[in-house]
Nucleic acid binder design. Sequence first.
DNA 1: ACCACCAACTTTACAGTGTCAAGCTGGATA
DNA 2: TATCCAGCTTGACACTGTAAAGTTGGTGGT
Lengths: 205, 205
Amino acid sequence: MSSKNSGEQNHHDQKAKISRDLREELIDAALAILAEDGLEHLSLRKVAARVGVSHAAPAHHFTGLPELLGCVCKVGFENLAKAMRERLDVANDDPHSHLIAAGEGYVNFARQNAGLISLMFNAGREKVEKSAFGGSGQETYSLLKQVSAPFEPVGAEPDSTETLIWSVVHGFAFLHIGGRFDNSGRSTAEPQIADILPRLKLRQG
Amino acid sequence: MSSKNSGEQNHHDQKAKISRDLREELIDAALAILAEDGLEHLSLRKVAARVGVSHAAPAHHFTGLPELLGCVCKVGFENLAKAMRERLDVANDDPHSHLIAAGEGYVNFARQNAGLISLMFNAGREKVEKSAFGGSGQETYSLLKQVSAPFEPVGAEPDSTETLIWSVVHGFAFLHIGGRFDNSGRSTAEPQIADILPRLKLRQG
DNA sequence: ACCACCAACTTTACAGTGTCAAGCTGGATA
DNA sequence: TATCCAGCTTGACACTGTAAAGTTGGTGGT
């Protein structure tokens, strides 16, 4: 069947699927499992099975599970920064709106990608190869620093305002996805980050 | 040897070890492994091996690993509350000092028990049986609520101040143990929660 | 055109994990 | 004394990540 007449434009995608790099397919599969079944059900073998290769195939593209997860986190940080940027783009053009937008982008991304962001921030060094992040983590921090800059008090420590804002946003996000806000002993109203952020002492909000 | 003359006060501790309830010993062993080797190296079989019983022995005291970890978290919450209370006891008797003391207790406990507090807050429902917590989690929340109460603004939402303070403290603690504050692009000074908390808008601090 | 090479993948194997099903055992109870 | 059974052990199973060896198909060299 496969004689010489047909095979020129597609070299090695003999399968019906689109078949990009297997490396990218594995990362996407891991992201899908993370979103559908959660962090607990994410395993190398299930990732391999989902893309239809043997369980040992990933070893030719990653040194091990930690590196794969590191790459997953890398695109996670890219997506987090993108979510924050998209919110910033449609926000009003004043510092206060920027701050709210970045915070809401962060929190909403965490809520919609709970398994992923938990992997990004809460996984130990032995489970996730953090050197695979590249500079992706820095982009989120840079964005936070950017929206924090207008509120820096005159005599304050260099990074204190970003630290304050990041702490509130991050803590709120993770307490939220951890279900700590729907416990008993609290009011029925679900707290919002947009209500929290204005309660920071910020220069000329 | 073990005739009838000696055995009245100690019924069933025939081994040389103190040998309390095996159940408690297993929980303590899990805490020890968590502190020494970290969350990644914690396994049912290692816990069993550490106390010197077979790998299936824990099944007679816990329905499974999730319940054991739930009990570990329970004493974790008790210890967290204790750490906060100890700080509160030696603090000055004004609302601001109380707030700082509770926050420092929380953050220092997190730094000194990184694996444990990560299990308490960041582990999924399938890994940790949260129903085993009992009311231990509520105690920490109650303490936070207590130190927050004096700062509640007049017209504010019922829980908004505790939410704000808990978010800052929790976010700061977890960003800290995640190493997010020793990345590049930041000042050399390590941030302190005592410097962060005064920058919240609080009624008559 | 041939051939050797090699990257990508598969197969097999191994140590480790949690959990279930038996089997044992010794002290308490009738 | 005989029985029972809580508490533990042994064995097995499915699953995990990883390493080693085997297979295969396309590529480059001559």
